[in-house]
Design a protein around this nucleic acid. Structure first.
Lengths: 227, 227
DNA sequence: CGTTCTGTTGAATACCTTCAATTCGCGTGG
DNA sequence: CCACGCGAATTGAAGGTATTCAACAGAACG
């Protein structure tokens, strides 16, 4: 099969010469996953990494009691599962399709070979891993140094920025939002409730309207929410 | 100045041809930091990264109330501050010498040039960043999904493994251990106390003797500590 | 139209932190 | 060499934030 078009526009492969794109399309393997399908589990041996072509994937850890912490929500065009391609040989977390998803799989050896041939792929990959590290420092900071209302306010504002709107639509359900913010649905629900009664936001299902942005910012980056 | 010997044995630079080592020693700049000196702060602009030659450095985040979360303790021969060399341009966290330290600083442009010339440096750097990502997934898991006694037990066992001894000597003080484990000295102290009274360990200052390893493992990876 | 999963609410509880008061340990200077 | 002083470490009491458990409401799905 020929995936050249899917591959050409993946940011990770930006700047690669046509020859390399052809080579990539030759070695890529297409895998599809229905919603709720496990793509890999923590500890599984890995011999390559994935790029998400369409759909959405969550990367997460599980506690022995079954509580879940989402590390990252993978969006289309993003690679995932790349850690064991370069260090260790097992996936450090679980991956599950949260929508019907199409991925391309790239075997490690082929990628390493390509990196040896083309430094721009190496630099793209370094940029990607560095960005992930940066995101993880924020996650650690949130989990360790901030309380749930702060995290939630920051998240809402972030989405608002990203979508350039004051009326955001969550692209994950509240259970998963809770897991992403390191808490549980009950807590999530209570805090959303408080924010509504304080007049900071308005909530209709997955739709959140930002009403008092100033107060949200104050909460996210400034003082505590006193209710 | 000539740092060739310091550089040759840095794992990050393993496998590089002599020519590259020479080049590295030409561009490296030596910086020394006394204990407690800030090396860089979160948000500072970065135009290169460091390798620690001797001493010890902590990488950490600060909350607005002043609480500290240590992300990583850098040991000799390890690079640090490498994220903004490849993505973004500012340091995502603070770095401070916790012992008198000697570092080499490598300007970003020079390193990028070297990577373009030599894929083995690229692969070493990718391995390093991947390893850090792996470590961060564990930190996130600990902070979000485990309680302090579990984290502490796991940490003690880890050091015991690493040093291959049942009588470990902490190389950081308990305040910093608390910060590394995402808690505060008081909590740390109480839990160590409970572990002692339960006969799991014995504590003499910075020296911890592992007495009941089985129970420690049970605590770290199995059931709860009921006291 | 019932079943199942998501989301909400209340009460009780657990864990950790905060604050305050000592105590300990160690380096420095008299 | 001892005493002092200061930060590190410990301990107790009180309080706060988030979780647990349970019950129920609501939405989605076949």
């Amino acid at each position: 099969m020929d995936f050249k078009d899917s591959i050409r526009y993946i940011p990770l492969f930006k700047g690669l010469p046509d020859r390399q794109i052809e080579e990539l399309s030759r070695i890529a393997i297409r895998y599809s996953f229905l919603k709720d399908r496990i793509i890999f589990s923590e500890g599984d041996e890995a011999d390559g990494f994935y790029v998400l072509i369409s759909g959405r994937v969550k990367i997460y850890k599980l506690s022995k009691e079954g509580k879940e912490q989402i590390l990252h929500i993978v969006e289309a065009q993003e690679p995932f599962g790349e850690v064991p391609a370069f260090a260790g040989k097992r996936f450090p977390a679980h991956a599950e399709a949260i929508e019907d998803s199409i991925t391309l799989f790239f075997p490690r050896d082929a990628i390493v070979q390509l990196i040896k041939n083309d430094p721009s792929l190496a630099l793209n990959m370094l940029a990607l891993l560095s960005l992930r590290l940066r995101q993880f420092t924020v996650l650690v900071e949130d989990l360790s140094l901030k309380e749930v209302p702060q995290r939630l306010a920051a998240y809402i504002l972030l989405i608002g920025e990203r979508e350039k709107t004051d009326e955001i639509e969550l692209n994950i359900n509240k259970k998963q939002l809770a897991s992403l913010l390191g808490t549980i649905p009950e807590t999530m629900s209570r805090i959303l409730g408080k924010m509504v009664s304080k007049g900071l936001i308005d909530v209709q299902g997955r739709r959140i309207k930002l009403i008092d942005k100033k107060a949200l910012e104050e909460l996210a980056y400034g003082a505590k929410l006193d209710i």
